[in-house]
């Protein structure tokens, strides 16, 4: 079973994402901010990371930059999932090493399509 780390400061979003991803046969780990997420990744590298942008302590973009420097940090597929929906943000995320990008609001179909896109399904 593949693991997916869901990183979002909203417990509601984490819950929604968990439900969708568990239906797609992922084991879910959760983190509330970039710092927590980085610690989880240092313990075990997940197969996928669903990543919010705006979070306290460490935001999604900074987390991504740190992650990609870690040993094995280039392996997880990172899918941003954020209300930041302008071209500038999307382009920065891709340049920083994100594999896909979901603009909120999202639903089951979009998550599934994007996870398929990066080869996780």
């Amino acid at each position: 079973m593949k693991t997916c780390l869901v990183v979002d400061d909203s417990s509601v979003i984490r819950k929604v994402a968990r439900r969708i991803l568990e239906d797609l046969s992922f084991t879910i780990l959760e983190a509330e901010d970039g710092q927590q997420a980085l610690e989880k990744c240092q313990e075990t590298m997940p197969d996928a990371i669903l990543l919010d942008w705006n979070m306290p302590v460490m935001d999604g973009l900074e987390f991504l930059a740190q992650l990609r420097k870690l040993d094995g940090g280039d392996t997880p597929k990172v899918v941003f999932c954020t209300t930041e929906n302008d071209v500038g943000h999307i382009a920065r995320a891709i340049r920083a090493g994100a594999n896909e990008y979901i603009m909120k609001p999202f639903d089951r179909e979009i998550v599934e399509a994007k996870f398929q896109e990066v080869g996780l399904l």
Binding site: N85, I90, A91, I94, E100, I102, D107, I110, A113, K114
Partner: peptide
């Protein structure tokens, strides 16, 4: 719509 461009279209091609 934002919904339509997220079903099947890779983000790089959207950009």
């Amino acid at each position: 719509t934002q919904f339509e461009v997220q079903r099947g279209l890779p983000i790089q091609l959207l950009l």
